[in-house]
Write a protein that binds this DNA or RNA. Structure first.
Lengths: 188, 188
DNA sequence: ATGAGTGATGTCACCTGGTGTCATCACACT
DNA sequence: AGTGTGATGACACCAGGTGACATCACTCAT
């Protein structure tokens, strides 16, 4: 073993998730998280900008994958087709973290402070998707509308997926939701 | 004059707006705001739940007025017509506070922490509008879609209105934006 | 092998947001 | 005159967050 136990960041994340789950976010102190990870409060703040961010580390990865999926789609793909590709990429990521997704989601839902943070992350993601769609030739309005639509579908599908006991894949739920929305849009 | 100078809340709001504008949100302490208002930090927190909330007090009023407008619309009004009525109500409110709107908007835009708070307020508003639309007989999906659409239009129109030197009324900008969206939706 | 970095961590002091608790005191009401 | 009452002040305290500096195992050039 090296000088320090490795994976300090992962240990902090795990400790935080456990403690937030056991006592709730507000009743957990950063010092407690750090102690459980065998570190100090100061080190916690070297890895995470604040007490909330420990639950959101890795969200850039989701963003990158969705943007990459949009960039990689065939040239003829329609706007909603691009959204579909991005949602498929999100599905892959979600399945990777399914183990923690339910607990994490419940923790966030229970705290206004964490919900605020989640919202701004979602906005950031929508902005990135909008830019990726513009880069694919969509005009500003169409890109923004499509990105927001994708965000709505992702949100709805996630809620359905996250605590689904039958473990239906996210991809399937998202595709169904998107198809449903297509129908509403075309018949309304 | 009574025992205390009246309008403690308004004094705190004004002091906060001024100081946030002069030094920025993060470099202003609550103690400074309170002092400028002739009060103490403890009293600040009796009027406002936290340092951010002082900029958002009154947002329930906007919500109430928009919901009331939806409730009061003629029975035959379409979904987008209800959104239009809600936007008209918002316009009235915005013109009432136009004097402070620009500064307030710039302060919020400059601080991630304040943008988080603004987002959650917007979500709360969208939720209230969704419920009001459901109460008017729209099904869940249609209500949510219409409310989100309204939120998008309001956001876009607000950005255009808030620092417009020619002082175009919000109502006009919002109506134009909504009409534009109707066109996009019907031709797309 | 050795001595000078290097980088992750610890230590400590500090500021500020936020809260609980009790004191104060002008006013109102009896 | 006496008794609330309600807005405010005073004070102590906790926890999130930061800056500055110390530590110390490891690396690498000489």
């Amino acid at each position: 073993m090296g000088r320090w136990r490795p994976d300090a960041r992962a240990r902090l994340q795990e400790a935080a998730l456990t403690l937030y789950g056991e006592r709730g976010y507000e009743k957990t102190t950063v010092a407690e998280i750090a102690e459980r990870a065998g570190l100090t409060k100061r080190t916690f703040f070297r890895y995470f900008a604040d007490k909330r961010e420990v639950l959101f580390w890795g969200s850039e990865l989701l963003e990158q994958r969705m943007v990459a999926a949009i960039e990689a789609a065939p040239a003829s793909t329609s706007a909603l087709g691009l959204i579909g590709a991005a949602l498929d990429a999100a599905a892959v990521r979600f399945e990777e973290v399914r183990e923690f997704a339910g607990l994490r989601h419940r923790i966030i839902a229970a705290s206004p402070e964490l919900r605020e943070r989640e919202l701004i992350k979602a906005m950031s993601l929508t902005g990135a998707v909008t830019r990726a769609l513009r880069a694919r030739g969509l005009d500003d309005t169409a890109a923004a509308l499509a990105a927001h639509t994708g965000a709505t579908v992702m949100h709805v599908a996630f809620e359905q997926w996250v605590d689904d006991p039958s473990r239906t894949p996210f991809q399937q739920i998202a595709r169904d939701s998107l198809a449903q929305l297509r129908e509403i849009a075309s018949t309304g």
